[in-house]
Nucleic acid binder design. Structure first.
Lengths: 191, 191
DNA sequence: GCTCGACTAGACCGATCGGTCTATTATAAA
DNA sequence: TTTATAATAGACCGATCGGTCTAGTCGAGC
């Protein structure tokens, strides 16, 4: 019998993809073992807490990825460059709309109650980080927060609609419009 | 033993609420019987096809509701009035963001594959109906379609974020902004 | 080479799953 | 009143669920 050895980060990424496809309730242990190639033994070795621990670690993993790749730049770097990076990162991470936002999906069903803190924290930080960049780029606090909220909402809506319509082009189109909406007020304050 | 008699429309509405709360996979037969008060016998009497038929009928039910209350007005009535009605209907139906869009939620997990046609049809008709109204109100075809897409996406994103953040005010705020975005181009063409 | 702990494979467990079936009750037609 | 049927309650079924456990396989350190 061949024996494949996995590293935990690989396990997290593999299981994450299954949750993304099937949802938390839809992803059964047998479907996880089948799709990832990890045996139950391995899964419960890495995640003694079972499905719930898998989901928690996956969300934490996604969160830290976004923090380093997107939120911290928005909070600390040159704002216009960070915002430009955000649009690129968003398009790449979500594979032009073919990949959904797992945290957003979790927010919509009962899974939300289980992970309410993590879900809330992720979206709040995204919005606050973007608002911070907008303010440093010269916007008022109220307008910046509204624009940030609008952008994050738009991204989530675009992901859902891209999947609902099975349309590959819609996500890119939406990101373009959202970028314009976001930059419009900044253009008025000068380049 | 007391015996409660249900009508099928009531059954549809009750089961719909369970799917809305727990998702398709998360809603087990036992949770459905517990939350609706309908016994398995009743459920399989109304829906011989089981869970899948329940979901299909619920989606069809939602679809026809939106068609009569929102899509047909957008397609046939005076466009500005129909659009104004759309915003009100949206806010009422989704209970100011406290209620999610079941069809949107289905779009995000594997349930989508099962009901791809219904999901696609619902969102396509919403966008097309709104675009039609915008065109009859004096917009160009391309711009109207883009604006309609943007509005529907925004509504879906707002619903997700309202739930993710557990924020009661965010949905109303978002609808207000979306309404402005939609009307802005029309204002330029005169009232 | 030996040992030990990290890791894996998959048989196995009680609980719960979606779904079926029987018994029974209410209702409406005759 | 009788009868037929629509509807309900819930016991019951095999399959699958999430999770446990045993029997290993490996590589690192001695």
């Amino acid at each position: 019998m061949t024996r494949t050895v996995f590293e935990k980060p690989d396990a997290i990424a593999l299981v994450a993809e299954v949750f993304r496809e099937l949802g938390y309730e839809g992803a059964s242990m047998s479907s996880i073992t089948a799709r990832t190639g990890l045996s139950k033994g391995s899964l419960y070795h890495f995640f003694p807490g079972g499905k719930e621990e898998m989901a928690a670690e996956i969300m934490a993993n996604i969160d830290t990825w976004f923090v380093t790749q997107m939120f911290r730049p928005l909070e600390e770097d040159e704002p216009r460059a960070a915002i430009a990076l955000m649009w690129e990162t968003t398009n790449t991470y979500f594979r032009s709309g073919r990949r959904i936002c797992l945290i957003g999906a979790f927010a919509l069903d009962e899974t939300r109650d289980r992970f309410a803190g993590a879900i809330h924290g992720y979206f709040k930080r995204w919005i606050d980080a973007l608002a911070s960049a907008l303010m440093r780029a010269g916007g008022g606090a109220t307008e910046a927060h509204a624009l940030a909220e609008e952008a994050v909402m738009g991204i989530q809506g675009a992901l859902m609609l891209a999947r609902a319509l099975g349309d590959d082009a819609i996500f890119g189109r939406a990101l373009g419009r959202l970028r314009e909406r976001l930059m419009e007020p900044l253009e008025r304050k000068g380049p």
